[in-house]
């Protein structure tokens, strides 16, 4: 049975995918790597851009998502956050 990812894990997976691609990724690659529907991915990317963890840029005529410093910080802190949260069961 496939384990259901919570929102924190999905956010981590998205940002981690961008980080693994050197801090910038094309929307199609992100869609493939994040394992989400297009609509869900768009919602989350918009949310992450509002939170300042991702930014959008046009590079050589195609759209790219860029990982910001805040996004890098989240990826690095993710396991600490998860461990803290799990201790309380939330």
């Amino acid at each position: 049975m496939v384990e259901r990812r919570d929102k924190v894990k999905i956010i981590y997976d998205i940002l981690r995918s961008v980080q693994e691609k050197g801090g910038k990724i094309k929307p199609t690659h992100l869609l493939y790597k994040s394992n989400l529907s297009y609509k869900r991915m768009q919602e989350l990317v918009k949310d992450l851009m509002e939170k300042g963890m991702l930014s959008e840029e046009q590079q050589e005529g195609s759209k790219m998502y860029l990982l910001t410093d805040k996004g890098h910080k989240f990826v690095n802190e993710y396991y600490k956050m998860v461990e803290f949260i799990r201790g309380f069961g939330f």
Binding site: K7, V8, K51, M53, F74, M81, F84, I85, F90
Partner: peptide, 11 residues
Amino acid sequence: HIYRFVGQKKY
């Protein structure tokens, strides 16, 4: 701090 990152109200 977690809430600001994640945006989930439970935090």
